[in-house]
Design a protein around this nucleic acid. Structure first.
Ligand code: ZN
Length: 268
DNA sequence: CATACTGCCTGTATGC
DNA sequence: TGCATACAGGCAGTAT
């Protein structure tokens, strides 16, 4: 599943590869992808001016419009010199040189087309929290988010309106690194644990970007390559396997309807 | 207000 | 081998 590091990887690759190029036409192979878009996909034409990321959203500024893309669970955004469609190909952007292809086997992802004003309103509506790699995300800011909340710490980390871009993988990984159980309430964390978690979160996100993300599902970068972060994951997807830190057995439980991995012996 | 639950989807894995 | 069923999960919408 693409989370912040995976989306950031694609954002950086898009910046290098397609910024400044031109969208000639759009082929829409699955109406569901853009069903909630106020402007039709076919209207997107012209120079690709800028690429941004907000939370797990990719923002591609084309002429006077903005493409807003969410990969959700299985979305892929690929750059191809020669068009290579497969059965999961939903949208194809024809560029002056090459193709930008949106694949999504499970069809959870979406693309919306906005004017800049509509984008502003949309971002206001979805109300994302702080970007964890921005300067605004200070230890004090994190303490304010933790506050006195009864919510389980893992669910708080994944709440996009509090901190933007953290999903299932990086929430459990940062909690393992900090030796904190995902089932703890936010308010139960002491000062030292909050500081440790704050540092772990940033450290892991930065490391994951360095390795171009973790391909735990169908994630691929812009060039169709898998991320190299999976070998560095300590708990995600390792149910029943020995903990790298204490040799305990990694456990998996359901928390808020999602698979949650942790080491019951060295996380407290 | 905050938090909890549900449905959307389809490829892959499992069971008979 | 083939068919049926379970499972995975981000997030918008709805319920508590
Ligand atoms: Zn352990």
């Amino acid at each position: 599943m693409p989370e912040l590091p995976e989306v950031e990887t694609i954002k950086r690759e898009l910046e290098r590869e397609i910024k400044g190029r031109t969208i000639i036409k759009v082929k829409n192979l699955d109406a569901k992808v853009s069903k909630d878009s106020p402007i039709s996909l076919e209207k997107v034409k012209g120079r690709i001016r800028e690429i941004k990321r907000r939370a797990k959203l990719l923002l591609i500024f084309v002429d006077s419009l903005v493409l807003v893309i969410h990969l959700k669970l299985t979305g892929q955004l690929l750059y191809q010199k020669k068009l290579q469609k497969d059965k999961s190909t939903r949208i194809v952007f024809y560029l002056n040189r090459g193709f930008l292809v949106f694949n999504d086997p499970r069809r959870f992802g979406f693309i919306k087309v906005f004017t800049e004003k509509q984008l502003k309103d949309y971002l206001q509506k979805v109300d994302y929290g702080i970007e964890p790699l921005s300067k605004k995300f200070t230890l004090d800011a994190f303490k304010k988010i933790i506050d006195n909340r009864e919510t389980k710490i893992k669910q708080l980390l994944m709440d996009q309106s509090k901190i933007a871009g953290i999903g299932n993988v990086y929430s459990v990984e940062s909690l393992f690194e900090s030796r904190i159980l995902p089932t703890r309430t936010a308010k139960s964390l002491n000062e030292k644990e909050i500081t440790t978690l704050y540092k772990a979160l940033r450290k892991i996100l930065i490391k994951a970007i360095k390795y171009k993300g973790a391909s735990v599902d169908t994630y691929l970068d812009l060039y169709g390559k898998k991320g190299k972060m999976v070998p560095f994951l300590k708990v995600y997807g390792r149910e029943g396997k020995p903990c790298f830190r204490c040799k305990g057995k990694i456990k998996r439980i359901m928390l808020g309807g999602r698979g949650t991995y942790f080491c019951p012996s060295c996380q407290k």
